[in-house]
Write a protein that binds this DNA or RNA. Sequence first.
DNA 1: TCTGGGGTCCTAGGACCC
DNA 2: TCTGGGGTCCTAGGACCC
Length: 404
Amino acid sequence: MKKIIMHIDVNNAFLSWTAVLYLKKGFKTDIRRTYAVIGGDEKARHGIVLAKSMPAKKRGVVTAETLFQAKKKCPSLKIYPPDYNFYKKMSDSMLELIRKYSPDVEQMSIDECFLDYTPVKHLYGDEIKFAYKLKKEIYDTLGFTVNIGIGNNKLCAKMASDFSKPYKVHTLFDDEVPVKMWPLLVDDLFGIGKKTAIKLHNLNINTIYDLAHSDGNYLYKFFKNQALDMIDRANGIGSCEVISEQEAPKGIGNETTLSRNISSKEELEPYLMALSENVAIRLRKQKKYASVVVVTLKDKFFRRFSHQKKLVNATNLTEEIYKMAFDILSEMNIDEGIRLIGVRLDKLSDTSSHQVSLFEDLKVREDNSELEKTVDELKEKYGFKIIKKASLMDSKVSKKYLNK
DNA sequence: TCTGGGGTCCTAGGACCC
DNA sequence: TCTGGGGTCCTAGGACCC
C-alpha cells in the first residue's frame, strides 16, 4: 500500500522567527513585510544573507550572498542578527505541535520535518484538508507560516513543499510526477547541486524529464554510483520511511572565520584551544568518545584543506583533543594567510575502549576525566565565564567562545 | 566592512595484509 | 627475478544539504 508522507517546511525560517521575536518584544513593524534580511556581523567577516523577507527577495536578494551585494540590490535593506536559541525554541514548539497528531515525525533540520500520515489517516481524514488545518494551526498558535508538501515518499513530499511559497499546500503523488516534476530543471531536483547541474547540462540533460529518461550505463561513466540514485530521484523514487528517533551525531565540529587573516601558528593556538574546548564539551554532553580529530583551514583564496589523525584510544578529554589538534596544525602549511580554522571530532563511539598501555598511568587519566566532568558541571551551572583554561586567560578568543 | 557554520556521504589513492 | 589481486584501513578532498 502506498504511504502518505508530508513535508513541513517553515517559510524563510530565520526571518519569520525573528519577526515573531520582535513582535513579541513590542516591535511595531513586522519585518516580513519590509526589506529585511538576517545576516551575520560584517566586521567579523560573517557578513552573508542567512534569510530574506519576500520584499527583499523581490529585489533580487538571495540567500548566502554577501550583505554587501544585498545592500547594493536593495539600498534600504535592514539587517537583523540571528538568535539561534530562539530559533531552537520555535523549532521545538512546532515539532511538539505536529507530534500531537502522530509520533511518526522525522526532523530533517531546524526548520523542516516529515510526518508519516498513513497510520493516522483514519483518525483525521483527508490528507489535503488536514494539511490546510495543520498549517493554519501552526500560524495561529506560533505566528509563522509553513509550506506543506504531500507525496507517497519523502522525496516527493519534499519536492512538493518547495513548489510555490509561502503558506501553501502542494501534492506530488506518484502519478503526478510526470506532470508536476518532470518539467522542472534538473537544478531543482533534491540532491543535484551546482556542480552536478552544470555537468548534466553539458550532457544536454536539462529537465528532470531528461534525467528520468537517461541511460544509466551512459551516466555511470560520468557520475559513478551517483548516476543511478539520480535517475531514481528523477522518477520520483525515494524512501518513505519516517524515522522518528533522532540518530546520534556521527561527528561534532566547530569552525570559525577569523576577523582577519592570520599566518602565524602562535596566533592560531588560542582559537584552536577554544574550538577544541567547544567540541569536547559537546562530545561529553553526548556521552561519546572520539577517535579521529580533524583540523580544517581555509586560506585567503578560500581554498579549504584539512588534516586528520586517529587516536589510539578514543577520548573525550579536552586536553587530549587539543594536544592532537595542535600536533595536526603543526604539520600544516599556513603561509597563505588563514581566514578560517575548525576542529572536528569523527568516528564517535560510546566507550573509550581504553587499552592500557604499559607505560601509561591510568590513574592520571581517571583523575583528568573526573576533573573535566566537574568543570563541565560548574560551567553548566554558573556559566562559561567562571572557569577558563590557564592558556585562555585574558584572551579575546575565550571571551568570544566561552562567555555564554 | 566582499564570500558562515553545522552536518552527511562518497571517492580515490596509498599502505598494509594475506 | 619484468610489475597478482582482493580486502581493509587511513587520509584528503569534494559535493551536497539546511
